[in-house]
Computed example of a mutant assay.
Amino acid sequence: MSNAPAIILFDGVCNLCNGFVQFVIQHDAAGRFRFAALQSAAGQELLRQHQLPAPTEPDSVVLLMEGQAYIHSAAALHILRGLAGGWRWLAQVGLWVPRPLRDAAYRFIARHRYRWFGRQDACWLPTPELRARFI
């Protein structure tokens, strides 16, 4: 990864997605990642800038990094690759799995995430200490 911050767009009302953001923050000591909810004005503008559709019901995390936009399993695995520790190795192994299989598993989890993990009525708000990492 370059030194430029990568941006993670996530479903701001999804408990699983919010947990993933917390996980990334915890394992990203270098502060490489910035965050925006897909439902936010900033998230919608970033989707538009990268010519990605603005879904009415977000179904994927989006990673904007080094001029590329990654979605579904590719986004999740590239995010893991950018974290400290053994996560980058796990991501490398995951990238060996054919993308159609990875994305099918990703979409299955995405389809059931609200039922399994719940959802919030409003987007999660970062603490004052973390606010600088959110767009």
Rank of each mutant, 00 (worst) to 15 (best):
C14F: 02
S40P: 11
G86E: 08
H72D: 13
I109Y: 11
N3I: 12
E66Y: 07
Q39D: 02
S2R: 12
F117W: 06
W116C: 09
L77K: 03
N3P: 04
A75C: 07
Y70T: 02
G82H: 05
P58A: 04
W87P: 05
P100H: 05
R48D: 09
A41H: 10
P53H: 09
Q49S: 15
R131P: 02
H50T: 06
A132W: 12
A122V: 09
L125R: 15
C14I: 03
A41G: 09
S2W: 13
S73C: 07
L95Y: 05
V62M: 02
W116P: 04
G86N: 11
R102W: 09
A75V: 02
Y106L: 04
F134S: 03
R102P: 06
L63R: 00
L46H: 01
V21A: 06
Q44E: 10
Q120G: 10
L101E: 09
R99H: 14
F23E: 04
A104F: 13
R88K: 15
T56K: 15
R34T: 05
P126G: 04
S2L: 11
V97N: 10
D121S: 14
V13Q: 09
P128A: 15
M1A: 14
G31Y: 06
R119A: 05
Q26G: 11
I8K: 01
V61Y: 03
F10W: 06
I8W: 00
V61K: 01
L9D: 01
R88A: 14
N3Q: 14
A110R: 00
A105G: 14
D103F: 04
W87H: 12
N18Q: 10
G85Q: 13
N3H: 15
A37M: 03
P128T: 08
L47W: 00
T127D: 15
I109F: 11
L38Y: 01
G19I: 04
H50Y: 14
N15A: 05
A132E: 14
Q26N: 12
E45N: 11
A36K: 01
V62L: 03
Y106R: 01
C123A: 15
Q39S: 06
L16K: 05
Q120D: 13
A76Y: 00
P128V: 11
V21C: 08
R81Y: 10
R88C: 09
A84F: 12
V24A: 06
A84M: 12
P55E: 15
G86D: 09
L77R: 02
S73F: 00
T56R: 15
L52A: 09
E129G: 09
V13C: 08
F20R: 03
A74Q: 04
N15I: 00
